[in-house]
C-alpha cells in the first residue's frame, strides 16, 4: 500500500513541479505585481492600489475589454458556423476520404500563425485578391484595400486561422455518434432534418462547446492580428496590455489588465457552462 502511494508521489512530482514553477508561481507573481507602484528601482517595493483605481476610473479600457470580448465571441461564432457543416460533410458524406480531407483542412494550421495573418493582409490589400476580384466584377472602381485595417479584417483573419481547431473537436464528436441512433430516429418518425435537430445536434454539442473554448480563449487576448490588420478600429485589449509592458514600462498596470482579462474569461466561461447545462434539459422540447 505505502509502496504504491510513494510511487504515485514520485510520478506526480515532476509535472506538478513544472506546473507550479511555470504556471502557478508566475501567475502569483503577476498578481502581486499589480499592487506594486512601478516596475523598477525603489518603486518596485512600494505597494499601492493606484492602478486598480485607475482601471476602475478608465471607462475607455473597460469598454475596450467589452469590445474585445464581443470580437472574440463573434470570431468563435463564425468559426462554429463554418466548421460545423464542414465537419458534418466530412463525417456523413465523405465516406472513406474523410481522413484525407480532414488532413487537408488541417494543413494550413501547420504553417506559422504570423504567415497566415500576413497572407490575409495581402489578400485584403489594394493590390490583393479581393480587390482584384471586385474590380473584375465591377464593384470596385480603382484598387483599394477591401476590409483591411478594420475590426472586420481582424475577425476574418482570426476566423480563418482558428477554423481547423474548431473543425477538429466537432469532427470527433460527430464521428462518435452511432449511426443506428439516426436510423432509430428515422424509424420513430423523424425526417432527416428533425433527426439532425433531435439527435445529431445534441450529441455533437460537447464538440461544439470544446471548439468554442479553443477559439474564444486565445482570441480574447489577441494583439498581433489587430496590430497587423486592425488599423485604428480593430485595436483589441491585448494591444494595450502589450503597450503597458513594452512602451509604457507600466508593468503593474499591464499585470492588472491581464488579471482582469483572466477573471472576465473565467466568469464568461462559467456562465456559458451553466447556461448549457440549464438549456440541455429543455433542448428536446424547445426545438423540432
Amino acid at each position: 500500500m505505502r509502496d504504491t502511494r510513494s510511487r504515485l508521489l514520485i510520478l506526480i512530482t515532476p509535472p506538478a513541479l513544472l506546473l507550479i514553477m511555470f504556471f502557478v508561481l508566475p501567475m502569483l507573481n503577476m498578481a502581486t505585481f499589480s499592487f506594486r507602484q512601478g516596475a523598477f528601482g525603489e518603486e518596485r517595493h512600494m505597494w499601492t492600489l493606484a492602478h486598480y483605481r485607475e482601471f476602475l476610473r478608465n471607462t475607455a479600457f473597460q469598454r475596450l475589454l467589452g469590445r474585445s470580448i464581443a470580437m472574440a465571441f463573434e470570431t468563435s461564432l463564425y468559426c462554429i458556423i463554418l466548421a460545423y457543416p464542414l465537419a458534418y460533410f466530412l463525417i456523413f458524406r465523405a465516406g472513406e476520404r474523410r481522413v484525407a480531407l480532414l488532413t487537408l483542412v488541417l494543413v494550413p494550421a501547420w504553417t506559422s500563425f504570423l504567415l497566415r495573418i500576413l497572407a490575409w493582409k495581402l489578400i485584403l490589400s489594394s493590390e490583393g485578391l479581393l480587390s482584384g476580384l471586385l474590380q473584375a466584377v465591377g464593384l470596385l472602381a480603382e484598387p483599394k484595400p477591401v476590409l483591411l485595417y478594420s475590426r472586420a479584417a481582424v475577425v476574418v483573419a482570426l476566423t480563418y486561422s482558428w477554423l481547423p481547431f474548431v473543425a477538429l473537436p466537432i469532427f470527433a464528436a460527430l464521428e462518435r455518434i452511432d449511426p443506428h441512433l439516426l436510423e432509430a430516429a428515422a424509424d420513430l418518425g423523424c425526417p432527416p432534418w428533425r433527426a439532425f435537430l433531435r439527435v445529431t445536434l445534441p450529441l455533437s454539442l460537447p464538440g461544439v462547446v470544446a471548439g468554442f473554448f479553443f477559439v474564444f480563449i486565445p482570441t480574447l487576448g489577441e494583439w498581433v492580428t489587430p496590430a497587423l490588420v486592425g488599423g485604428v478600429d480593430g485595436i483589441m485589449y491585448g494591444n494595450i496590455i502589450q503597450d503597458q509592458f513594452v512602451r509604457g514600462l507600466n508593468w503593474p498596470m499591464g499585470a492588472l489588465m491581464s488579471l482582469v482579462m483572466l477573471l472576465a474569461m473565467l466568469v464568461l466561461l462559467g456562465l456559458l457552462v451553466w447556461l448549457l447545462k440549464a438549456l440541455h434539459v429543455e433542448l428536446g422540447d424547445l426545438i423540432g
Binding site: 441512433l181 428515422a186 445534441p202
Partner: peptide, 25 residues
C-alpha cells in the same frame, strides 16, 4: 417509402437508445 412514414418500428441489436435522453424521454 422512408422509414418515418412506414407503420413499422424496429428494435436494434444494440438497442440504439438515445444516450442524451432519459428512459422516459
Amino acid at each position: 417509402v422512408p422509414p418515418y412514414r412506414r407503420p413499422v418500428n424496429i428494435v436494434f441489436q444494440n438497442y440504439a437508445l438515445f444516450p442524451h435522453l432519459t428512459v422516459a424521454q
